[in-house]
């Protein structure tokens, strides 16, 4: 879908992007991560021609972006930035309608579309009459996402979209965006410097430093590598724990049922009734956290109504890696 070939961009004597080759498949969420100044934002901005590379070529759907008028190109790509950039002189609804209006869509279609987009990001239609200054940071960025999606672009460019909201709101926005992404299957290029965010969001992660991509792989593949050096150092030792957040307790129970050695759900396993309980839709990082906090090796797994559905053991959590492709 998006293909970078030999991208170089210099500002003065510094090479912000120094020869990047990268390919992002359709419907994939690719996270560009790296320390500040590593060139990740510059690389993102070459896709919609906000930055023109000195060398190399960006292709979208096999077609060089340079061949298309910049404005037309940008209207086919949603653009979400950290500072949101809502227009303060337009209502929320008008903000969301900007690109559909630029594309000359019909008035009634625009109204319908903008209401649908607000609904998608969890805001009722009444919000469309409000002004940007009345919104909290999290609400503003929801509108920012709705605005980017309004013309149904196949590609989303997100430059630290959740970087300026508080941690709780950030996690909520990440979850909601993932839910949206599962429905819409956009091709997303997502820039961040937050490792946890990258793990939660990414189908693939590209780690950048000094304008180069050091490694491009799925989050799981990063764990398997025992290479020393910047990538390991940047991701941190806790990466192995963080990545547990990508799997739910339910997945472990279901995969254990299929195997002969179904320890996780073996009913004859005696378990103290006072064992701490974890919800079946929790993730493994949360389960591990609970084990560490209570100093236990097994947890009772309960469903939404609090009924016991299985048992989770420490080795189920730690042993998942081998089961995972």
């Amino acid at each position: 879908m998006i293909k970078f070939r030999g991208i170089v961009k210099s500002y003065g004597s510094t090479r912000a992007v120094d020869g990047v080759d990268l390919e992002i498949g359709a419907g994939e969420l690719c996270v560009l991560i790296g320390p500040s100044g590593c060139g990740k934002s510059t690389l993102l901005r070459t896709v919609n021609r906000m930055v023109e590379p000195d060398e190399g070529e960006v292709r979208v759907d096999g077609r060089p972006v340079r061949e298309r008028p910049a404005e037309d190109l940008r209207r086919t790509m949603g653009y979400v930035i950290q500072s949101v950039g809502l227009f303060p002189h337009m209502t929320v609804g008008e903000n969301v309608a900007v690109v559909p209006r630029l594309l000359g869509m019909e008035r009634s279609a625009i109204a319908k579309r903008s209401a649908a987009m607000l609904d998608l990001v969890g805001l009722s239609p009444a919000w469309s009459r409000r002004w940007p200054r009345e919104l909290s940071g999290g609400e503003a960025q929801r509108v920012g996402v709705a605005r980017a999606l309004a013309a149904d672009p196949p590609i989303l460019l997100m430059d630290e979209p959740f970087g300026s909201v508080d941690p709780l709101t950030r996690v909520r926005l990440q979850r909601e965006f993932l839910a949206i992404q599962r429905r819409l299957h956009k091709t997303v290029l997502f820039v961040t410097h937050d490792v946890e965010e990258a793990i939660r969001m990414a189908d693939r992660i590209a780690v950048m430093r000094s304008g180069r991509i050091l490694r491009y792989a799925t989050p799981e593949e990063f764990v398997a590598s025992d290479a020393e050096g910047f990538v390991t150092e940047f991701l941190g030792l806790e990466y192995g724990v963080e990545i547990l957040s990508r799997r739910s307790v339910r997945e472990v129970l279901e995969s254990a049922e299929g195997t002969e050695d179904a320890r996780a759900s073996r009913p004859d396993q005696p378990l103290d009734s006072s064992a701490p309980a974890v919800r079946v839709d929790s993730n493994l990082k949360e389960a591990l956290g609970l084990m560490a906090a209570r100093r236990v090796e097994c947890l009772a797994v309960t469903d939404d109504r609090g009924r016991r559905v299985g048992t989770l053991r420490l080795e189920d959590v730690l042993g998942t890696w081998r089961a995972c492709p």
């Binding site: 919609n48 906000m50 404005e71 940008r74 930035i81 500072s83 950039g85 809502l86 227009f87 630029l102």
Partner: peptide, 15 residues
């Protein structure tokens, strides 16, 4: 005029 508004306007494809 806020830089972010102009950047967003450009990124959304305004001439």
């Amino acid at each position: 005029v806020p830089e972010a508004a102009v950047d967003a306007a450009r990124g959304m494809g305004m001439k």
